[in-house]
Design a protein around this nucleic acid. Structure first.
Lengths: 186, 186
DNA sequence: CGGTTTATGTCAGTGTTATTGACATATTTC
DNA sequence: GAAATATGTCAATAACACTGACATAAACCG
């Protein structure tokens, strides 16, 4: 099966769909997750750029820092990328002395990964800005964000958390956008 | 300022750092956000691949579907990408009749974006799989994931939510990984 | 011991998503 | 009419990912 199968109503008309999309309780969370993640990775990105590294380097550095002795296979399973993709960034990090490899003791085929002091320092800087954002989000007074949200179970706190993860100056914009949808969906 | 400035302790030794990284209350959330987002975008990716579209197409389609009449400028502000990047994917979506442009009425420089029936259908399929994951995560019995987590404020539910967002079969692996850190940090 | 599997590394080619910088057009605003 | 705004487009580049194929070393197993 390669193409559509058009599950819903594969319209072919080049006509603007008039019906507004159906609403579902988790819909806000979907968008909030996008915005939260966008800003969440934005902080480290700025630091990484100063080192000539990217997001891929960050992920490798982070997990090796948090879980010293990680093997290549474990890392591949965590990141869900191919060996070739991993090797490209891992090579950078090893050549520039952020990470070292040590041959496994019980299984000498394995390469156990460790951060050097330099690697730990950078990983620390990166996790610091992210921890700051998360900690602030957790400390935010509940409801400082959602206002008139429908309270159902854990939905509210998950929603609050994600909204609080968004860059403060951007929250108004996001809230305004999402309000726009709520209005038109009446 | 282009290079390091080595804020913490720019080690130069190619020696594995022995000290395990310091712990912080939000650290688990940082990793959970990574895993949750990884699986969250994995669902739509599989569908999009059948249409020859990527994640960028998804984001454009989603926001145009949810907010009919969005302008280019608004979309650029939401997605935080450049005009050129947007145009590439937008062109695909327009050429294949998923989105149409209409000249703005009040300001005729603007191009208002709308989904066609076909666009709405695909957007619906995509949001459906994501809503399913979110809804399931919200319905999950609180604590079905965290087990012995430190309860402090909204931390627990945010943590539960993110863990519940992870693909069920992968949760054990994630939990095992994170337990590994908890152990070594004693 | 010898064959198979596992863990890792690497070469070559490709595709998607993003970037920068420069420039063009239409329209609105002052 | 000049300046600012909204959008479109050309060209070059980079980051990050993929596939497929192949190579090496070590472990495992009969």
């Amino acid at each position: 099966m390669i193409l559509p199968a058009t599950p819903t109503a594969g319209g072919d008309a080049s006509v603007p769909s008039q019906s507004p999309p159906a609403q579902s309780p988790g819909d806000d969370l979907i968008e909030l997750l996008f915005f939260a993640y966008r800003d969440f990775v934005g902080d480290p990105d700025r630091i990484l750029a100063q080192y000539g590294f990217g997001r891929a380097h960050h992920r490798v550095l982070h997990f090796v820092d948090r879980y010293p002795g990680l093997t290549i296979a474990e890392l591949l399973d965590i990141l869900r990328i191919t060996k070739q993709s991993l090797n490209r960034v891992l090579k950078d990090l090893i050549e520039q002395d952020y990470i070292v490899q040590k041959t496994g003791t019980s299984d000498r085929r394995q390469r156990l990964l460790f951060c050097t002091a330099r690697g730990t320092a950078l990983a620390g800087d990166l996790i610091r800005v992210q921890t700051h954002r998360v900690t602030r989000a957790l400390a935010e007074p509940a409801g400082a964000a959602s206002e008139g949200g429908s309270s159902e179970g854990g939905a509210v706190s998950a929603q609050n958390f994600l909204l609080a993860m968004i860059e403060p100056e951007e929250r108004a914009t996001v809230r305004r956008l999402m309000a726009r949808r709520a209005r038109s969906a009446v």
